[in-house]
């Protein structure tokens, strides 16, 4: 049986790993390769690097970092952040990344997911979806349907897109995405647990692995996400402040009965 995965996510800019709230007040927390190697040694199953600079596409410092990372790292890693063209993705994958993650451009660039799937295969294409909970009366579902729903948002949650997250996940998979990285903007940063309703809806709607993201505080939160169908859990602050939590979380999950790589 394929193991559930614990995936630390590192925000990178200017060749450093940073931490901040909503991209402001960024604090340098270390060298990406050093941190990545440490996380890998501690048992991280995979890593995600988010280039939060994301203004200059395919810029050399990022590619050099990926090359260095690929030479040192013995676990898979995904690179995302501002990827909007196939050539940019190609440069990142050729530099040694295993997967690329596309978010806003998947919505805005027609044919992007299809082209990435055709060129690199579904297993290299992650569609990142940021979603926000909409209570009845708050924002109407695009179809006019009453009741609670989840809206796709971009720009860190500031731009509502008027698209149902479940429908968008299905569309992205039909176009060729091999994995969904699902972030609840409501839960992100709360450490109160993943949005299980959102996560469960998406897991039930698509036949590809779903990575739950946003809200992880404890092993129990991660177990809850697995219980609603997530194949993997993205973690950030809880492991950045104490990387030695990685093996602890994994062994707690294993003890709780989840298949983990120990």
């Amino acid at each position: 049986m394929v193991k559930k995965r614990l995936i630390p996510c590192l925000d990178v800019t200017g060749g450093r790993v940073v931490k901040g709230v909503n991209f402001v007040d960024l604090r340098d927390i270390g060298d990406p390769v050093e941190l990545a190697t440490r996380y890998s040694d501690l048992g991280a199953d995979e890593l995600v690097f988010l280039d939060i600079t994301a203004t200059v596409h395919g810029h050399d410092p990022l590619l050099r970092l990926i090359e260095h990372m690929s030479a040192e790292l013995e676990i898979p890693f995904t690179v995302g952040g501002g990827i909007s063209a196939t050539e940019h993705a190609r440069a990142i994958l050729r530099a040694g990344a295993d997967k690329v993650s596309v978010n806003r451009a998947a919505l805005d660039v027609p044919g992007l997911i299809e082209e990435l799937e055709y060129e690199f295969g579904a297993q290299a294409v992650v569609c990142a979806i940021d979603a926000k909970r909409r209570e009845p009366g708050e924002a109407t579902h695009p179809s006019g349907r009453p009741g609670r729903w989840f809206e796709v948002v971009t720009h860190g949650g500031r731009t509502p897109r008027g698209i149902d997250a479940v429908e968008w996940a299905q569309t992205a998979v039909r176009r060729g995405a091999g994995e969904i990285l699902l972030t609840s903007i409501d839960a992100d940063g709360t450490r109160a647990g993943y949005d299980l309703e959102l996560t469960g809806l998406i897991c039930d709607a698509v036949p590809v692995p779903v990575i739950a993201s946003g809200g992880a505080g404890t092993a129990a939160h991660i177990a809850d996400a697995f219980a609603v169908g997530a194949e993997a859990a993205l973690v950030a602050s809880i492991v950045h402040e104490a990387p030695e939590r990685i093996p602890v979380l994994k062994s707690e999950l294993k003890e709780a009965g989840w298949p983990m790589r120990i």
Binding site: D45, E46, P207
Partner: peptide
């Protein structure tokens, strides 16, 4: 399989 690609660590 219920989830394809087969993605991740397996024994």
């Amino acid at each position: 399989a219920p989830r394809v690609p087969h993605m991740g660590w397996n024994t």
